[in-house]
Structures are given as structure tokens and as C-alpha cells.
Nucleic acid binder design. Structure first.
Lengths: 217, 217
DNA sequence: AAGTGTGGGTAACAGCGTTACCCATGGGAT
DNA sequence: ATCCCATGGGTAACGCTGTTACCCACACTT
């Protein structure tokens, strides 16, 4: 019986790297950020901490790898959303998928946005890589503009505003400020409100936010 | 020459508590969350760590005090915004003050929203106390409704949606996703977009978001 | 004045990130 | 084939963290 480290070592350097990240992710998801220590990762795969330091340079390097992995997963989740026929529905589906992904992997979401690994701050190239998670969103906004549903405008900019709104709602939900029973409705109301501002025809009643207009849900 | 602790001790228990929190805040603001250790707080005021444990019960209790203080400061900042004549301008001023306050005290903002103190999660009553920071916002929304600027609706609910949008934009700005030169404009564009959704008359051109409609700023 | 109790300082414990030291192993040079 | 050097990894330590057991000194009661 070999340790996971010995198995991975025979497969080359990248397999060791993957084994380390996989176990780090296991610890993060199953026991939270507090369990993410260099010692526990090392003993978990049957190696010493030295391996982690030669491969990642320290906990910050490992946090960077987790940060990028988190956004890579978000990117994958966004790309796997089935394409709806109506461009506005497609954009709405991406927003819903964003929230669903954040709620499904809150540990990752906290690494990405709430500094779950205490010292780490993403560098410029990590931030740039993170932006690629929203390529699908930018494309969906552009489709809305091209279809005439949205007024002409800057698609990446509109996508970033939608991101900010989605992140704000999800972040407050995860922090406990939005109770579970109203969080989903608030998310939808906020995303609809923001999206409505960019419509070519502002009077489309079907996309008026339900909340706050006296119409009960 | 006395230590700050000895001075405060003579003034009673609450003065000791204030001295501890003041020094904790100093460390937090000047050196960031990493410097916020029980030992540094204790030696900083000239006492032993035992005092912190008898008074706050542990680091979590101290984090709770900082969390509440952060929202109390936000509440004060919101209440000190001069009341504008136009209710919509007043609401907009509160949003601008929210962002300004977050940027002025980012260490506090991270304690409040990004778990800067690693283990701490606010309890139900801390969350409830946090909500009072938005009393001014709720009142401003209600004033917009009463003045007929906003359509009839649920003022606390609309205020929470505005909060989510503001928090999302500020959070992404602090995380480095929004570069400084465009962050202010994005914040305004997002807040205007959300606010516009609740207007009684959706065609008020003055409050249409500038961004994304092809009009350069 | 003696007894009692409480608050705080000392020093320790376990665990953290990190690294200096040392050994084993493997490939290139002779 | 043999030697040598370089590199990679394990051991164990350092200084730090949050936390607490122990103990003493002071104050208040009787």
C-alpha cells in the first residue's frame, strides 16, 4: 500500500500538484478554511510539508492555486448552462447558475471573495484570469444587444454591473443577512431590476421587478 | 507613567473594554487583520492576555465587538449624511456615503463582510444589530415612495436590494476587480440602474444609467 | 485581624507557517 | 565502472498563534 503522494510521484510532477490541490480542496469543502493547514494537507497525502513548499512556495502560492481553481470552476459552470432561445432568458439563466454555483460550493466562494485563506490577495494576473469566468456572461449580454433586446452599449461593462449585483446578493445571502426563504426572490428581483435598465424598450412589463410595486408574489 | 490599562482600570470596567477595542481597532486599521492578535492587543495596552479573555471570552467575542462597532460606525456615517431636498438625491447621497465609508475604513469593511477575523461568524442578534445601519436608507426609500418618485412598494425590501447592489460593487472594488478609475462610475451606474427600476415614472431620463447606452461619460 | 474570594500575571500547551540541516538517491563526468 | 555533485525530501526546530492551568496579591467581609 502506497501513500497518495508515492502514487502521484511516479506519475510525474503535475500529478503531485493535482494530488495536493485535490486534498486541499477536500479539506476546504469538508471542514472549512480553518482545516486548510500545510501540515494537514501534507500528512493527508502522506508527504512532508517540504513538498508543498518546493511546489507552491508557501501557503500563499497554494491559496493562489485554489483561487484560480475556484474561478475555473465558476467558468465551467457558466459555460455548461444550456443555451436558451431568448437571449434575455439566456442571460437570466447565467445569473441563476452563478447563484446556484456559489451556494453549491460556498467554501470556494469564500476563497474567491472573502479571503478565506487569511493572508492571500490575488495578484494582477490572477484577477485577469478570474475575469474569464464571465466570458459567457459578456457573450450573453452582447447577444441581447445584437437581438435588439438591450439598447446598444458596452457589453463587458454591462456584464460587470450584473456581476456586481449578483455578487452583492449572493454575498449577503452567504453572510446570513438574507434569510433563505427570501434570498432567491431578492436575487431575482435585483437581477431583473438591473437588467431592465438596459432594455431597448423600458416598458416591457414582463421584466419589471415584482418586488416593491405592490404586486404580491 | 501608567500603562493605558492601569489608567482605564481606575475608570471602571467599561473604560477597560473601550481601551481594548480602541487598540484592537488601531492594529486593525494600521497593520491589517493579521496584526490583530490577542498578545499584541494585550501588550499594546500594558495588560496580560487574561484580561481580554475575562472580558470578551476569547477572540471570537472580540471579533463580535469589532463587527458590531463596524456596523455602528456605518450607521453613524449614514445618519450624518446631510438631508437633500429631493428624496431621490437624498437616497443617492446615502449610497455614495456607503461607498465612501467602505473605502475610508476597508479594514472594518472586511471584518463586517469578508471574515477578516478568521473564525468569526456573526450570530443572529449581531446580524439584527447590523441591519439597523440601514435605517436611514429605509427611511429615504420610504420618502421616495411617499413623494411619488418611487412607485408604492415595500421600503425595507427595496432598501435591501439597494444594499446588495452597493455591497456588490464596493466588494468587487475592494477585491481589485474594479480598477480605481472606473469603480466610482460603475458604482453610480449600478445604483442608478437599480433605483430606476422602482421609479413611478420609468421615463425620467435624468436617472437613466449613463453606462451601456452609447453615451460617453 | 483573620479569612475568603476574585481578578490578573506567568508560563505552559498544542498547533500554525516556515526553514535550516542532513541524508539518500540518481545522473553525469572521468 | 566508479566517483562526485546536485537536487529533492524528511526531521526537527523556531517563533508565532489562541487558550488556559496555576498561583499570587489584593480587597472586602466578619
Amino acid at each position: 500500500m502506497n501513500t497518495p503522494y508515492q502514487d502521484a510521484q511516479r506519475l510525474g510532477q503535475s500529478a503531485v500538484r493535482t494530488a495536493i490541490l485535490d486534498h486541499a480542496i477536500d479539506l476546504l469543502v469538508s471542514e472549512g478554511p480553518a482545516a486548510l493547514t500545510m501540515r494537514r494537507i501534507a500528512t493527508g497525502i502522506g508527504a512532508s510539508t517540504k513538498v508543498l513548499y518546493t511546489m507552491f512556495g508557501g501557503k500563499e502560492g497554494l491559496a493562489d492555486a485554489l483561487y484560480r481553481e475556484g474561478f475555473a470552476r465558476l467558468r465551467r459552470a457558466q459555460q455548461q448552462v444550456p443555451q436558451a432561445a431568448d437571449p434575455l432568458t439566456a442571460l437570466n439563466d447565467l445569473g441563476a447558475a452563478y447563484r446556484a454555483h456559489a451556494l453549491a460550493e460556498p467554501a470556494y466562494y469564500r476563497v474567491m471573495f472573502e479571503q478565506a485563506v487569511p493572508g492571500y490577495r490575488p495578484g494582477p494576473e490572477a484577477l485577469a484570469a478570474a475575469d474569464h469566468a464571465f466570458d459567457a456572461s459578456v457573450a450573453a449580454v452582447r447577444a441581447c444587444i445584437d437581438a435588439g433586446v438591450f439598447a446598444p452599449g458596452d457589453a463587458p461593462e454591462i456584464s460587470k454591473l450584473l456581476w456586481a449585483a449578483a455578487h452583492g446578493a449572493v454575498s449577503l445571502e452567504l453572510a446570513g443577512h438574507f434569510p433563505p426563504e427570501s434570498a432567491a426572490h431578492r436575487f431575482d428581483a435585483l437581477m431583473t431590476a438591473v437588467g431592465q435598465a438596459f432594455l431597448a424598450d423600458p416598458d416591457r412589463a414582463a421584466h419589471t421587478p415584482e418586488q416593491g410595486r405592490g404586486r404580491p408574489a
